[in-house]
Design a protein around this nucleic acid. Structure first.
Lengths: 123, 123
DNA sequence: GCCTTTCGATTACGCGTGTAAACATAATGA
DNA sequence: TCATTATGTTTACACGCGTAATCGAAAGGC
């Protein structure tokens, strides 16, 4: 089963640093999201059930760590969107952002460099 | 409120051609999705409630047409993903697909052309 | 003028989600 | 030792979604 949006916020905290306790996670995400203890605990339990995180006992409490990597998650999500909306092809996606004026100077520069590198590695 | 995934499939039919009757939509999408009449009608009603489609009476029945454009929908969805996963920047997204070997020759060629055109229009 | 067919509208129902309260349990402090 | 605290587990509840069955009304057919 898929990691939901609220769950992904918890994952984000764990991707930044792990393993960490529930208290620790709450401290980082609670104030910002307006979540309280029970909410974070529930989300952690659902993530455990989905095998997206693992928990290791540390005395009285648990320390949580990702099992699903950020790369895996990002891949699933972006492939889903690419397939649903752009026929699975990257160029139309970029064209869309270009039309939407969502390409910054920096993006353009980086994209050029990226394409250059691709040329270099496959002569 | 957001257009859900099943609803988006109905929208797709309407984006391809509209206005069309519920019967018509069912014929196109039912067999393929395994949906039957009631399902399509419900989805249409939810889309009406969300103001994503409009309905115009045609004798005994209605003809449905998009109110939300495909462009709008695609923009919302892709901006959402971009912001959530790539800090709102396009280059990292493309880099991700590149690392994932999801860039075809064709993509690369089109991207080069796109960047070239961007250079041309802003000398 | 009724009966059947054709549409749309309403209602239903199980499941996941967001958000937590309530409960259980073990450790700790008085 | 007994109440309190700290943690995790279970239960709750409203809401949206996927999927339809049912209801209601209008339009023809006879």
């Amino acid at each position: 089963m898929a990691v939901s949006e609220a769950e992904a916020i918890i994952m984000d905290v764990l991707w930044r640093a792990s393993p960490r306790s529930a208290e620790d996670i709450l401290a980082e995400v609670g104030p910002q999201q307006g979540w309280q203890e029970g909410t974070v605990k529930s989300l952690l339990n659902r993530l455990l059930k989905k095998k997206a995180v693992k928990a290791e006992r540390d005395g009285r409490r648990y320390l949580y760590a990702p099992r699903l990597t950020r790369e895996q998650y990002v891949s699933q999500e972006s492939k889903g969107l690419l397939d649903r909306l752009f026929g699975g092809r990257v160029a139309p996606l970029v064209a869309h952002f270009s039309e939407q004026r969502k390409l910054s100077k920096k993006d353009i520069a980086e994209l050029k460099k990226l394409l250059q590198e691709l040329d270099d590695e496959q002569p």
